[in-house]
Write a protein that binds this DNA or RNA. Structure first.
Lengths: 295, 295
DNA sequence: CGATCGTTTGACGGTGCTCAATCACCGTGG
DNA sequence: CCACGGTGATTGAGCACCGTCAAACGATCG
């Protein structure tokens, strides 16, 4: 029932069939620069300085492709409402999800260096975006300093998030990856002012699986494992975090079930032998780094 | 104990041990904006417009930590020469390599949104960087348009690369990941004007393993597998690509050894059963995407 | 209500992680 | 000069996590 997206009933549905339909995106009423800045986190009002500047707002239906990988880049997009996933389609049809984006996030910036989009972007629910023409981007950045700084800020955040995604793809137990993903989702929700305990996941198990680098069946199994361990309550895409501390402990641990929680309370759940991992660079050669965390 | 850190006797070592030591990086002669722009790929000379602007150049010895994860960010770095790795240290001491950076690449931009570095940066060989004070960054960007555009270009490329890294971490056979990594390294070398056939890897097997999301022993085994398949010749960190087409074919295939190469020539090397993968989003639900590649 | 897709659960087999030993390489110091 | 400790790279053996295949159930929408 997808209980409500962000912009219900826009009356533009256009009924046509799937991929033949030309416009997965449709133009809505234009927005102002102030609207754009607000969603990007700039409180300051610049209406008086640039009153006339407006830019198009597009509606994107759930499942529609906003940006096509390989297509020439015309616009930079900033999410106004809704949720998107960014993905690359590998040569054999495989889809690798790279990130999820919500209000305030920038889409399509990776196309600037080559002129072609390096990744596709698909709406996970009915959404709206600001479409900034690439031709005018430099002009606006030079004439609207808050916009420029907000853009740099968003790009920096996007790079930092790419690192977090790599952490979630790190070769650790699948339950740990899912726990990290849920913690990450939780703090994302909190940053947007929503409840960090009750999550409604907009993405499918497949998408989560691709982001975490596991099979989607494994995501299901990891969900039930976290439920068995008392961390969560799960009903399809609704997730309630019952024990945030335990979930975080699981997310921090390299492999499987955290040690200090293994005794008693969750009987018989312990099944892995080792808890230290040889994987990758644990305790590698950079002693300067180790020095920052004295034994 | 902790036998020596990054600076084998630079005179600054201050004898007092490890992390207390202040300067793993040393100041060299300052560079000009033109130098910075040149390494970032801007041919245009702006010396006449901004003749007086110079900025510090730092020397970073092999193994030294240029940026510390969690530290407050003072500078933005642009690689002038050498190679770096960027990594995040997880809570349990695990090191996740995020990317490798060479001349022209920007380091530390992920700190702009939070004020603290989201990742550490370590030199893989003796290197030099331009250090751009964050306080002056906006000023320079506004007064030197080529620098600003070069920065945006570099950031866009960095985001695109993050996607490629995710592809290399994708859950496919380990030999495929290594093949993708080598192809990626090869084109990187070609872009810098060096030979795409003969590679000298600056990073250790551990670092490669972390980037690919496998154990470092598996990287060794995958190297020997690619050698057995006739793709490579490997001597420690020197790699010669013998059959680029076959290597690319292996990199494109989802799992293991490419089919069309399996017969005859490499006898007995075939050992995997399936070649199609259920993993993640192969052929998932987005019909618009399929429309772009007609059957 | 039927078709389609998403989710869950089960069983099985294989890839790759773990542990371990060995070798090569290097700078150090006897 | 060679012995010595330390690091990195390689190879082998064993096992278990997770990918694959399969089936069943639930959800959604026409």
């Amino acid at each position: 029932m997808l209980p409500q997206a962000s912009l219900p009933g826009d009356g533009l549905s256009s009924g046509g069939g799937w991929f033949v339909r030309r416009n997965p995106v449709m133009v809505a009423a234009p927005g102002t620069i102030s609207d754009l800045l607000r969603v990007m986190g700039v409180s300051q009002d610049v209406t008086q300085r640039e009153p006339a500047l407006t830019l198009p707002v597009w509606r994107v239906r759930s499942g529609a492709v906003l940006l096509h990988e390989g297509a020439v880049a015309d616009f930079l997009q900033v999410v106004r409402s809704g949720t998107f996933k960014s993905l690359r389609t590998l040569e054999d049809g495989y889809e690798q999800v790279l990130s999820f984006a919500g209000p305030g996030d920038v889409l399509g910036f990776d196309a600037l260096c080559s002129g072609h989009h390096a990744s596709s972007v698909v709406a996970l629910e009915d959404s709206t975006v600001f479409a900034v023409p690439l031709r005018e981007l430099d002009h606006w950045r030079q004439h609207c300093t808050p916009l420029d700084q907000a853009l740099q800020f968003a790009l920096s955040r996007q790079l930092a998030r790419a690192g977090q995604v790599a952490e979630m793809m790190a070769p650790v137990a699948s339950e740990v990856r899912l726990a990290r993903f849920l913690v990450w989702q939780s703090v994302s929700m909190a940053e947007r002012g929503e409840s960090p305990r009750r999550l409604y996941l907009r993405m499918s198990r497949r998408d989560i699986a691709s982001l975490l680098g596991v099979a989607h069946e494994t995501v299901s199994r990891s969900f039930t494992a976290l439920v068995d361990w008392g961390c969560l309550r799960v009903d399809n895409r609704e997730v309630e975090i019952l024990d945030a501390d335990r979930l975080r402990a699981c997310a921090h641990n390299t492999r499987g079930f955290p040690d200090e929680l293994a005794r008693g309370e969750v009987a018989g759940a312990r099944r892995r032998g080792t808890c230290s991992s040889n994987l990758a660079n644990a305790r590698s050669a950079h002693r300067e780094l180790d020095a920052t965390r004295p034994a």
